[in-house]
C-alpha cells in the first residue's frame, strides 16, 4: 500500500477530532476523502503532512513510517494545501525553483523538471508571470505542478477546487485522475463535493472524526446517486 493509516486518533484538548481512523490507498489509486465540513479532513491532512504529530496510531507513506522515518516519508509526499501557499511576489518559475531547492534540486536538472511539470499542467507560457497576476485556476495548476516536481509517490490535495468555477474544477479533477493512471501516483483528494468523485474511485467517508465507509464508489452507492448516499450516511449519523 502506498498510503496506510492505522488506528489514528487526535484530540484538541477534550475535543476529539479523529477517532480510530484506519484506511489504506493502493499504488496509482485515486481516493476521495469525502466528508462534510468539520468531519476532520483538515486535521487528518495536518497529521499526514507532519504539521501535527499523531497522538495515537500510525501513518505509513510509500512504506516509510512517518514517525520513525519522517524525512524519507516527506520526500515521497506531494501536498497541495487548501489555502494557497504560493509566494505572490515571485514568478511561477521562481516559486517552483524555491520548492525544488527545498527538495534538494537545483540548477539545470531542477529547471528541466520545472519546464516539464509546467508543460504537463499547461502552464509553460505563464512561467515568467508573477503568481499575484494568476487567476484561481492557474494558481492551483501551479501548485499541483509544484507538488509533483520531486516525483512523489503519494499526492495529497486538500479541497483543491475550493473557490474555482465549474469548468476549472472539472478540468482539474480530470487532470488528477489522468495523472493517477498515467504515472501511478497515489492520490488522496479531500473534498465535500460529490461530483468530483468517479465510480471507480476509492471513497473514504469521514464524518465526525470517524470513517463511516471505505470502498469503491460504485459499490458503496449502489443504485443511489452519490450525493444521496452521502447525505444518507452523514445525515443519519448527524
Amino acid at each position: 500500500m502506498s498510503l496506510q493509516v492505522s488506528d489514528l486518533s487526535f484530540s484538541y484538548g477534550p475535543k476529539t477530532a479523529l477517532e480510530a481512523v484506519s484506511f489504506s490507498v493502493g499504488h496509482g489509486q485515486f481516493a476521495a476523502l469525502l466528508g462534510p465540513n468539520g468531519a476532520g479532513k483538515s486535521t487528518l491532512f495536518s497529521l499526514l503532512t507532519r504539521l501535527f504529530v499523531t497522538q495515537g496510531g500510525t501513518i505509513s507513506i510509500a512504506g516509510h513510517d512517518l514517525a520513525a522515518a519522517p524525512l524519507s516519508a516527506m520526500a515521497d509526499l506531494g501536498v497541495v494545501f487548501q489555502q494557497s501557499t504560493l509566494d505572490l511576489d515571485l514568478t511561477v518559475q521562481q516559486n517552483l525553483r524555491y520548492f525544488a531547492a527545498l527538495h534538494g534540486m537545483s540548477g539545470r536538472s531542477a529547471d528541466m523538471r520545472i519546464d516539464a511539470a509546467l508543460d504537463r499542467l499547461g502552464m509553460a507560457e505563464r512561467a515568467g508571470e508573477k503568481a499575484r497576476g494568476l487567476n484561481g485556476g492557474h494558481r492551483r495548476r501551479t501548485e499541483i505542478a509544484r507538488a509533483l516536481l520531486h516525483q512523489p509517490k503519494v499526492l495529497l490535495l486538500d479541497e483543491p477546487t475550493v473557490g474555482l468555477d465549474a469548468p476549472t474544477r472539472a478540468g482539474l479533477t480530470q487532470h488528477i485522475h489522468d495523472l493517477c493512471s498515467d504515472t501511478g501516483v497515489t492520490v488522496l483528494w479531500a473534498t465535500h463535493l460529490t461530483d468530483e468523485v468517479r465510480d471507480r474511485d476509492q471513497v473514504i467517508l469521514l464524518h465526525r472524526g470517524q470513517v463511516l465507509a471505505d470502498g469503491r464508489c460504485g459499490d458503496l452507492r449502489g443504485d443511489h446517486p452519490l450525493p444521496e448516499y452521502f447525505a444518507q450516511m452523514t445525515g443519519a449519523r448527524a
Partner: peptide
C-alpha cells in the same frame, strides 16, 4: 496565516 510556512515546514529537512 497565509500558509507559506506550511510549505517550508513540510520540506524533507529537519
Amino acid at each position: 496565516e497565509m500558509g507559506s510556512m506550511r510549505l517550508l515546514l513540510t520540506a524533507p529537512l529537519s
